[in-house]
Design a protein around this nucleic acid. Structure first.
Lengths: 337, 337
DNA sequence: CTGAAAGCGCTAACAG
DNA sequence: CTGTTAGCGCTTTCAG
């Protein structure tokens, strides 16, 4: 492949000038810039990322640490981020941390060191040592769906969104409202569960409704967990008439549990989920929609900004909204106790 | 950060020796290797990818072109591939091509040029010009779920798998078996649809069953498409008693269509899907399971192999199996013609 | 506005 | 087995 010397020779200038011309630096006469660009084009010349990287110390790459790429949510965020970064000529490097082992390996070995110009963290609440490790990278940092000192931040208002979901249940007449949430002692420990729980409690308090331990069960944020949680709720001395599941995956599991018990939503129990997962529509699930790809785009832009200006950006909170489908309805007036 | 000269000085050897020792080349005495490694460790030295890349011409990176990262299937494959590559010290660069525009941009501009040591293509049947463009990269190539000259190949036997799915329906007594497939004129144009269709036809022929145009409908490989397709099948003069959907997403859409019509599976119509999508279990969907992450791992290993030996590897065909759940059953003997 | 020359940090001959 | 010496292809002073 043609290198910068070829272009220089062909254009009758020095390599320094080629370099300047191609990068659009101001101190090159318009005429030579045009000539250089034309020659570069003709020779199909591309600057070597490695070579310019070695010279500048930049890599043209941003890394993304993601807990589960295969979850719809993360894939969407990455898609959005990739689109923006690609547009800015940056590559996206993936670091998948699916379990505690790969996670701790990532943060101790820090394979990203020296290989990225910026780092993106997806929905991975960081322990202090972890965020310190990333700060040690000395590059701009941003995080989606969590917060950490020194990180740009894009997220939704989980507490508010949860309130909207639960208030919907209250508004259509429910008094016994259950919850399917996360588990308390996960090492990955997301922050959303806590916030969503708070929103749930806010509404119960506002509406003067009872909170009962037997109406709450952990669902691990998986369909199977949601199914088990719902099974547990159904075993309550007096089951709830509606349930707020903190994720659509869990809500879908909950629907399965209902089927197993020959019950159905919303006839016997109303269910509202969270995320507007791609399957939610096909399952007629009422849920809270959050802009997913947009969060990826926003966080990527934040990083670009930081790369350019050096200033840590303001946190960005994106809007959510309730999508009412057919899994929620007024409680059965015939009343099953 | 410490560089190779620091290590050399500290260990009392030349930089060349440090380089050799750290890469485990054979021509270094065990004692100096140990010393060098110890010093490197102590100084927390890491070789600079850019610098060694410039010297060797390698990048330590493999690229993956993927049509829709957010689809469960692709995420799983990437997870598997990333795990293997990371283990070999290679980074995974993502090129997302979600639509025709980004796809053609990718293949004409070839942003991967000079940035990757190998290239991975996910379920993207390549036009001749596209595969030629990739071959022009001059690096090992591999593809999952499709085939192309000069590419290593990992896939499943779609035709066989489809036969198994449809034969299951025949075995439990169905005679009128419908199909929800892809659309014929997608630019992305996967190969699986054709193979799965062939498998479907094989079984119909074997069993002497009728093929009827009104029992086949395109589902676009999305839930919504599947719903529309099923709606169409239900409008047939005599609807099928069972349906083979070429993907779980479409099968899930089909289930929704049944609900809309106050029908249900398997009581009124049996449905078998394909993929064993993460939601399939929660929906009690009978389906064909394919090893997803394993395909990613296999293709990554294939690439590593090729990188090491230079030999184009044999195609790898991974096994699939039928998972019988509750969406299929013998046809209703009461017969709703 | 442009060119010459000195690196960026590492690896690869080539000697010894 | 180890050191010396050139680069890899670009960017960046520093002169002019």
């Amino acid at each position: 492949m043609a290198d910068i010397a070829d272009v220089a020779r062909e254009a009758g200038v020095s390599t320094a000038t080629v370099s300047r011309a191609l990068r659009g630096l101001s101190n090159v006469s318009e005429s030579t810039r045009l000539r250089v660009v034309a020659v570069a084009e003709r020779l199909d010349y591309r600057v070597s990322r490695t070579a310019s990287g070695l010279a500048t110390g930049h890599t043209g790459t941003v890394g993304v640490v993601v807990p589960h790429i295969s979850r719809w949510f993360f894939g969407q965020v990455i898609t959005g981020a990739e689109r923006v970064l690609r547009g800015a000529g940056l590559d996206l490097l993936v670091y998948s941390v699916d379990d505690d082992a790969s996670r701790s390996r990532f943060f101790t070995q820090l394979p990203a060191r020296g290989r990225v110009d910026a780092m993106l963290v997806l929905s991975l609440p960081l322990a202090e040592t972890e965020s310190a490790a990333l700060r040690g990278l000395g590059v701009p940092l941003a995080i989606v769906g969590a917060q950490s000192d020194g990180f740009g931040c894009v997220r939704i208002d989980d507490r508010h969104a949860a309130r909207v979901a639960v208030r919907h249940l209250v508004n259509i007449g429910h008094h016994r409202i259950g919850l399917i949430g996360g588990n308390e002692d996960s090492t990955l420990g997301f922050t959303a569960p806590g916030d969503r729980l708070a929103g749930y409690l806010d509404v119960l308090a506002d509406a003067g409704l009872e909170r009962r331990a037997e109406w709450e069960a952990p669902g691990l944020f998986t369909a199977r967990g949601g199914e088990q949680a719902m099974t547990q709720l159904l075993a309550a001395s007096q089951p709830p008439t509606a349930v707020f599941a903190m994720s659509d995956e869990m809500a879908i599991g909950a629907l399965k549990a209902l089927r197993r018990h020959h019950l159905s939503a919303p006839r016997d129990i109303s269910i509202v989920g969270f995320d507007d997962h791609e399957m939610a529509e096909a399952l007629d699930l009422t849920t809270i929609a959050q802009p997913v790809a947009s969060q990826g785009e926003a966080v990527a832009r934040m990083l670009l900004d930081q790369l350019k200006t050096g200033k840590p950006p303001e946190p960005r909170i994106l809007p959510t909204h309730l999508v009412v489908r057919a899994s929620t309805a007024a409680p059965d007036s015939r009343g099953r106790t």
